[in-house]
Simulated assay, not measured.
Amino acid sequence: MQQTPDELRHIEALLDFYAGSGVDCFLGDEPADWFELTRQQAEQRHKAHPPASQPVSRLQAGTPMPQAGVLAGGYQAPPSGAPMAGGQGTASGQSAVLPDREVIAAARDMASSAASLDELRACLEAFEGCNLKLTAKKLVFADGNPSAKLMFVGEAPGRDEDLQGKPFVGRSGQLLDRMLEAIGLDRSAAYIANVVPWRPPGNRTPTPQETEICKPFIKRQVELVNPDVLVFLGAASAKTLLGVQDGIRKMRGRWMTYPVGGRDVAAIATYHPAYLLRSPLEKRLSWRDFLAIRQKLQTGAER
């Protein structure tokens, strides 16, 4: 039976949805009870690695975090196979963790211990406190020039970024490249990162808990890059790092400051390239923002 044009468009939209959600294989002929499979896997992990007698999430306030095994920058990581803070995760079969205050504190201590971007990346690769790591294919740390005076910060990686392990490499990243080219720059003149370095399933918005857990790492990343101009791609990254509550329409195009290493860095928010793909008429406003960014770089703050 031949489908109508409307039916074909619905099928195409459904396939796009599946692709964006990470579905990259055919379904089986028989239904699978994923709840039962998950329960069986949890029982197997429980038998292989019984939970500690006193999980970190139930310790009294002020109790020091367990420490064992030193990683780059002095971070104290649990030994291989040991439960992680706030949950039952292990290095060889990690399960979800409870995003409690102890996990956030561990992320803060871990990020502050990194003395270089390489150490910070190693810390993130070893960090087991964010559940997004369970579903993501790769860590999406950064791209571009770490010595650049210009730094972009987005919210979270998408499907293409998850596959390649680099931020802004899909359609929105290609648009960002063209926007940089329009002001005479390319990725060698910028450093690009995200607040959340792992792709949320189905490209959903990161939860406040996930953002809070990842926040110390992006703050430390900005400190280590120490740019002259910091650009927030979308309102989410600006709200996370600046603590503002304004929407992107009210915030964009307005110069603000972000404290880095004892000095105030010029900061500006502009539309996320993904939004511009959906709303091309707004590109004229982003063009104004990028012209202002170019002018700020030319006349900008001394390092």
Rank of each mutant, 00 (worst) to 15 (best):
P5K: 04
L8P: 02
I11S: 02
E12Q: 11
D16K: 14
D16P: 03
A19L: 11
S21N: 13
G22N: 02
V23R: 09
D24S: 07
L27R: 15
L27G: 15
L27I: 12
G28I: 03
D29W: 04
P31H: 10
R39L: 10
R39A: 12
Q40H: 04
Q40K: 04
Q41W: 14
E43G: 09
Q44A: 12
S53G: 11
S53R: 11
Q54F: 01
P55N: 08
S57R: 11
T63C: 11
P66G: 13
Q67A: 14
Q67P: 02
G69E: 00
G74F: 03
Q76F: 06
P78H: 12
A82R: 15
A85V: 12
Q88V: 07
Q88D: 12
G89D: 10
G89R: 08
L98I: 15
P99W: 10
A106S: 10
R108P: 01
S112K: 15
A114G: 01
A115I: 00
A115S: 13
S116F: 04
D118F: 12
E119Q: 15
L120C: 00
R121W: 04
C130I: 13
C130L: 10
C130D: 15
N131L: 08
N131P: 02
A136T: 09
L139G: 09
V140Q: 04
F141N: 01
D143H: 15
P146V: 00
S147V: 00
L150K: 03
M151Y: 08
F152W: 08
G154S: 08
P157R: 05
G158T: 00
G158N: 06
D162E: 04
V169S: 00
G173D: 02
G173S: 01
L176G: 01
L176T: 02
M179P: 01
I183T: 07
I183C: 06
R187N: 13
Y191T: 06
V195I: 13
T207I: 09
Q209L: 15
E210R: 00
E212C: 02
E212T: 11
F217I: 00
N226T: 03
P227Y: 05
L230V: 05
L230F: 08
F232H: 06
L233W: 06
L233T: 03
L233M: 13
A236V: 06
A236D: 11
V244T: 15
Q245M: 11
G247T: 11
R249Y: 03
M251V: 05
R252I: 03
R254A: 08
W255D: 05
M256F: 03
M256N: 08
P259K: 08
P259C: 05
V260A: 06
G261T: 03
R263M: 08
R263V: 01
Y271L: 12
Y275E: 13
R278W: 09
R278E: 14
R278G: 14
S286C: 11
A292V: 05
R294A: 06
Q295Y: 03
L297P: 02
A301K: 10
R303N: 04
